[in-house]
Each structure stands twice: as C-alpha cells, then as structure tokens.
Amino acid sequence: MQLTLDIEQYAIQDTPQELPLRARRGISVALQGLSKSYATRQVLQAVDLQLRAGEFVAIVGRSGCGKSTLLRTIAQLETADAGSVQVGNGALAAEVRLMFQEPRLLPWKNVLDNVSLGLDHQFRPAAIAALAAVGLAERRYDWPAELSGGQRQRVALARALVHNPGLLLLDEPLGALDALTRIEMQQLLERLWQERGFTAVLVTHDVQEAVMLADRVLLVEEGRITLDLAIDLPRPRQRAGAAFGQLEQRLLDRLLQQ
C-alpha cells in the first residue's frame, strides 16, 4: 500500500529534486554470542544484542573497547569467530549501509556519480533526490575535492540513503567535523531517521551526541555491553534540559569509572 502511494506521488511531482525516496520500515538486528579476537586480544566477548526495527541506538565507549568492531561485524566487513548476526529476516545485504569515519568518496567521480556508485543509470533521479535530502543537489557536478569536510560527509550520507537502507550503521561519521557542522549533521540525521524510519546504529565517543540522538545508549567496555540505557526524552531534544544533563552526567561518570 505504502509503495503504490509513493509511486503516485512520483508521477505527480516529476521534478527530480522533489522526488521522495520510498519509505521503508527499519529492520531488526539480533546478535547472539558474538566473539571476535585479533591474535591474542579478544575484542568482542560473547555479545548478545537485540535491536528493534526503527530504533536509534548509540554505542559509546573508550577507544579500542570494541565498539567499531561490533559495528563492522554487523556490516559483515569483519567475520566473527563465534556467534551469529541476523539482520532482518534474511540475508538481504543490500538493506544494510555503513557510513565510515571518513567520507571515503571516490575523488575521480563527481558528487552525483559518487552517490550513484554501484547503481544503474535509471537510479540517477533517486541519487539526485538523496542529494537534495542532504541539501547538496546543486553541488552534484562538483568534484569531492571542492567540498568542505562536512559537505563530503553529507554526500557519503546521501550515498548510503539512496539505497533505502533498512539499517544504517554509522561509524563515528561526525568525529572529524567542527562543532557547528556537527550539530547541523546531528539534526540532519535525526530528521532523515524520523522521515524514513530506518534502524540506526551510531558508534560515537561523544556522550552528548549519543544522548541527543539515541533511543538507547549502549556502553561497551572490553568487548562487552555493560550498560543498556533507555533515553526516553521527547524530541526534538534540548541540550540545556535538566533531564538531558542528568543522563549525560550519568553516562560520563560510568565511562570515567574504569
């Protein structure tokens, strides 16, 4: 039903910028007894985790605690030594997209070609629509070298969104941005997540960012999930609120304890 509605919309507004991407419900993730080690160092120790469809989950932890490995294992960029990863109901790899710490754009392709990487020509309108969603439709014929750091990360976001992922994995994609650009990107992410309803997993070392965006914050310590904190603040959230500050403080204290 949802699908036919969207196609009708497509027919009415045929200017590419206005074209809405097909909304898709997020997909669930189930991890069971996930373990992984590099040489002698164990980075994941029997991790069990259930993510509900459409949930925004943040994973925080100190450097080297295994949070990135956890994300990369869900993305199947790393294979686990033991345990299982189940994404959605089957093995639909196309529904999972990962945003890296760096934009990882191909410098020899213009912005639009980067966004439509791995897609047929017929998806070009969808790629332009995804660029419009991150506010960069006018820059589509520019080279990545001509963009600022924040703009490049927005192009990388558009590249992930054009595939309509049911699960979007974010590996500290805002880590290298300046404070203002970061806040803008957080707002953009929240808005797109609300519009499209994908499941989002954000790895970050910024506790405030986690509390700002996530429904649930997971704390990873030495390859284990040691805290699973629900954040039920109403959206849009205010950084200055008392409840916000309490949650942030609680997480920070917990992080600094070790």
């Binding site: 993305a75 960029l77 790899a93 196309a94 997209r97 990962l98 890296f100 760096e102 990882r104 191909l106 020899w108 392709k109 990487l117 791995g118 590249r159 595939h163």
Partner: peptide, 27 residues
C-alpha cells in the same frame, strides 16, 4: 584499501570495482 572496502560494501566486484576504483586510483 579503505576505498576498496567502501566499494565492496556497495556491491562492486570484479570489473566494475577495477574500472571505478582501482584503475582511476592508479592512473
């Protein structure tokens, strides 16, 4: 290798991977 990893995660294999990533990078 980061670009190769990215391209693989977007489903590029074989000739498309070579044409779009490896060759332009070596050019």
């Amino acid at each position: 290798p980061a670009l190769i990893e990215m391209a693989r995660s977007y489903g590029l294999r074989g000739w498309p991977l070579f044409r779009d990533v490896v060759l332009p990078s070596a050019l």
